[in-house]
Design a protein around this nucleic acid. Structure first.
Length: 281
DNA sequence: AATGAAACCTGACAGC
DNA sequence: TGCTGTCAGGTTTCAT
C-alpha cells in the first residue's frame, strides 16, 4: 500500500519520464465513482503539456504548463506502470495514457514516447482534474511534509489534542502528511513508544526522538524504493525492498528483533497495529 | 469538538 | 471442490 516513500518513488519516475511531454491520448477503461464524467476528464488532459510531476502527502501531482493539474491518489492497490505500445489492457486497468514523443526529447531519454497504465484492483484511487486554486486549496489542508519540516516542527504537531492516541495522530494527514499504517508502526517501534499512548503522556524528548526516527525511516525507505508489503510496485513494475527492514509491521506473534518478546498485534483505529510490549512503553 | 466506525472494493486465504 | 467468512487499509462521510 503506497505511503510517502512509495509515492515519492513513483513521482520521481513519472517526473523523469514525463516532464515536458504532451499527453496525446487518454483511454478510460473503467469509469468508477471517482471518474463519473469521463469525457470531461479526457478533455482536461489531452493536449496538455506536463511541466513536472511531484508528490505532496500521498498525492501524485501532474502539473501542467497552464497552471492546472491532475491529483492522483493510489490508495491501497493503485499502480502507475509504464508499458510498451503493444500492451493489452488487463482486468483492473482504469486508464491508459499515451504521450507525444517527437519533441521534448532529451539526451539519454528513450526514443519512443512512453505509455502509462493506471490500474487499481480495488478501485479506491482517484485522478482528479483541478485548477491552480483547487490544487492549492487541497494541498493546504495537509500537515507538514516530514522530510521538509524540522524535527522541532514535527514534534510540535504531535502535542494536541492531548487525549489523542499517538498512532491516530501519525495517521492523520492533516497533522502530518504521508505516514500510513506501516510507517506509523515502524516509527513508533524505533522510537520506543507504544501506539496507544496519549499525546499528553508523551514527553518532549519522546516527540523529538519520534520525529527523528520518522525522518530516518522515510529516507531509508525511499532509498530502497519503498515497501512491497502487499500490492505495491513502482512505475517500472519493480517491488520495493524496504520490506526486509520492517521490524514490527506484519510480524505479530514473531519475536522482537531487539529483545525476543513476541510482537503484539491489536486493532487501533480499525487498523492492524503491531508493537513490542517490552520495547515500547 | 473530538472521536469512532461504517462504507467504498476485490482478492487472498482459512476453515469446513 | 467449492462455499462462506474474514481480513487487508486511505480517505470520506456519517454517527455518537
Amino acid at each position: 500500500m503506497p505511503e510517502l516513500p512509495e509515492v515519492e518513488t513513483i513521482a520521481r519516475q513519472l517526473d523523469s519520464a514525463l516532464r515536458g511531454r504532451t499527453i496525446k491520448s487518454v483511454t478510460l477503461l473503467k469509469t468508477g465513482r471517482e471518474a463519473p464524467t469521463g469525457k470531461k476528464f479526457i478533455a482536461c488532459l489531452e493536449g496538455k503539456k506536463i511541466q513536472r510531476v511531484v508528490r505532496r502527502a500521498k498525492l501524485l501531482i501532474w502539473e501542467f504548463a497552464d497552471g492546472s493539474a491532475v491529483l492522483a491518489h493510489l490508495k491501497m492497490t493503485g499502480r502507475f506502470v509504464f508499458a510498451d505500445k503493444t500492451y493489452q489492457p488487463a482486468k483492473h486497468d482504469r486508464a491508459i495514457f499515451e504521450f507525444v514523443g517527437a519533441h521534448a526529447m532529451r539526451p539519454g531519454r528513450a526514443a519512443h514516447a512512453p505509455t502509462l497504465v493506471w490500474s487499481d484492483i480495488r478501485q479506491f484511487g482517484f485522478m482528479r482534474c483541478v485548477s491552480k486554486e483547487e490544487k492549492e486549496k487541497t494541498l493546504a489542508a495537509y500537515g507538514p511534509e516530514p522530510l521538509e519540516a524540522t524535527e522541532d516542527e514535527i514534534a510540535r504537531c504531535l502535542e494536541k489534542p492531548k487525549t489523542r492516541k499517538i498512532k491516530s495522530a501519525l495517521l492523520d494527514q492533516a497533522t502530518i502528511a504521508g505516514i500510513g499504517n506501516i510507517y506509523a508502526d515502524e516509527a513508533l517501534f524505533r522510537a520506543g513508544i507504544r501506539p496507544t499512548r496519549r499525546l499528553s503522556e508523551i514527553t518532549r524528548a519522546d516527540r523529538l526522538r519520534l520525529a527523528r526516527e520518522i525522518k530516518i525511516l522515510l529516507k531509508k525507505s525511499i532509498r530502497l524504493r519503498g515497501t512491497s508489503a502487499s500490492d505495491y510496485v513502482d512505475a517500472s513494475g519493480a517491488k520495493g525492498s524496504f520490506e526486509k527492514h520492517l521490524r514490527v509491521y506484519g510480524r505479530g506473534g514473531e519475536k522482537c528483533l531487539v529483545c525476543g518478546t513476541p510482537i503484539k498485534r491489536t486493532v487501533l483505529n480499525q487498523r492492524g497495529t503491531h508493537y513490542c510490549p517490552q520495547c515500547q512503553k
